[in-house]
Amino acid sequence: MRQLSFVEPGTVRWEETPDARLETPDDALVRPLVVTTCDIDHAIVHGLVPFPGPFPLGHEFVAEVVETGGAVRRFRPGDRVVVPFQICCGRCDRCTRGLTGSCRTAGPGAAYGMKPTGGDWGGALADLVRVPFADAMLVEPAGGGPPTAVASASDNLPDVWRAVAPFLAESPGADVLVVGGWGRSIALYAVAIARALGAGRIDYIDTIASGWRSRSGSAPAASRARRRAAQARSPSR
C-alpha cells in the first residue's frame, strides 16, 4: 500500500509499504476518505519540531471501515467513522476517567502520525490504517454531513471545544480573546466555536490579522495594536 512519510525538514515522500492488516480480534481496518493537516504537521514538515524522520504522517481523518476483527461489535464494513488521533483502549482506569492520552494499555502519548513521541502506529495518509481497540476508538459522525466537515474531529475540534466551551458555559456571553500565531487552524476554530456558543466580543490576535473580521466576525486586535505602535514610533512633524 502507499503511505506518505516525513523524511526530513522540507521533504515528504510516498512510499510502498506492506498492507496494514488485522492483528487482534479488537482491530478494524479502515480506508481514509478525508485527511486534514493539523498545525503540528506543518511544523514537522518545516523542521520546527525536532522529530527525526522517516515516519508516516497524518492523524486527523474520516475513514470507511473495510474489515473488522471477530471481537468488534459496534462497527462493520462500510461504516463511515471518525478516527481519533490518540490510541486508547477505552477500558483502563485512565481511559475510563477520560485521560485517553495516557492510556495504560497503548502507552502515554500513543498516536497516529507522530512516531517519535506517539509510537509506531502508522499514519492517516495511507491506503489503509489499522485501528486497535476499534469499539472504543471509532466514532460514528453525527448529522450525516460531508466527511470534510468533521475530519478535524479527530483532534483539533475537541481540543478547541474543551478550551472554549466550559468557560462560556460558566460565563455566558463573555468576551473572548483568541491568540493565533503558530496554531492558526486551532485559533480559527476557537473563533467559530466562540461565536456559535454566543460569546460577546471576540478579539483575534495574530501577525496576519488583516481581513479576519470579514471571514470570522472577530475584531483584528493585533492590527490595531501594530498601527498604534507604528504611530507612536513615528517622528512628530
Score class of each variant (00 low, 15 high):
T37V: 06
P158W: 14
M114N: 01
P147L: 09
T148E: 15
C103W: 06
A219D: 03
A126H: 05
W14S: 08
G119I: 09
P146I: 13
G101H: 13
A221G: 05
R227M: 08
A106I: 01
C92H: 09
E8D: 03
R31K: 08
L157T: 15
R224I: 01
V35W: 00
W212R: 03
T105G: 00
R201V: 07
G70H: 08
A194V: 06
P108I: 01
E140R: 14
W161V: 12
P172T: 13
G211S: 05
V65M: 10
Q86Y: 13
V12F: 10
V62R: 04
Q3D: 08
T68I: 13
R74I: 04
S234P: 00
L197M: 15
R213V: 00
G47E: 10
V178H: 04
A71G: 12
F51E: 06
P141M: 13
P220W: 07
D27C: 07
V139E: 12
R21S: 14
A187G: 05
G211R: 01
T36I: 00
G69H: 07
T117W: 09
V35H: 00
A219W: 14
D206E: 07
P56Q: 15
P132E: 04
E67Y: 09
R21P: 00
A142Y: 03
A28R: 12
A126S: 11
V66D: 11
L168F: 09
H59M: 03
R94H: 08
V7Q: 11
